[in-house]
Amino acid sequence: MFTREFECPSCGAPIKQNKAGSRTLCCTYCGQTSHLNADSLQAVGEKQLLIDYGSKLSVGLQGKFEGRDFLLLGRVRFDYEDGFWDEWYLTFLDDGSEAWIQEDDGSFVFFVEEKKVNTRFQLHRIKVGTYNDMHGEWEPVFVTEKSRARIHGGEGELPFKIIPGEQADFFDGIWKGKVVSVELLPAEQLLFVGRLIKLKDLTLT
């Protein structure tokens, strides 16, 4: 398995990278978020250690989902007006594919990134309770929620660059009985497709 070690640019503690292609590494000791540029880490944003609210998931945890072994590599916490939610970043050990588990107030959604949407969405133009045509870049999605949000912080390693405090609006929807989430990050718009799961569906080791 791929691993590389770095030193936190802020506190010097060792930081391990477990997946090639990760773009953000977070120091588990001081909470510093760093972007991975070539072979060095560049500290960005304020230090932010995520408070644990009793989740059964944690970075470094291995488990099995639908018969496939996975490793939790990191997580991002988003703040919005109704509180916060966590997105757990995982890799399957059999083929190295990536997925996300969204944990929001006791409910879990298993997400896989479907595509990047190029045309920028204007949050105020998205109407909840109606179908959105997705700028013709994908099939229409029934929008169930939209909100302004910001990145509270990260933990472990992540496949894209984050900066704590950065705006990260989103809208969620339904497409053919599946959950859709579109994250409107400053650099890109990512469309995820997922389904509701129960915590007991994850065999945690």
């Binding site: 588990t28 000791y29 995520l50 644990d52 009793g54 059964k56 944690s58 933990e155 472990g156």
Partner: peptide, 8 residues
């Protein structure tokens, strides 16, 4: 699991 974040 990280050293700084412990599951309560």
């Amino acid at each position: 699991m990280s050293a700084a974040i412990k599951t309560q």
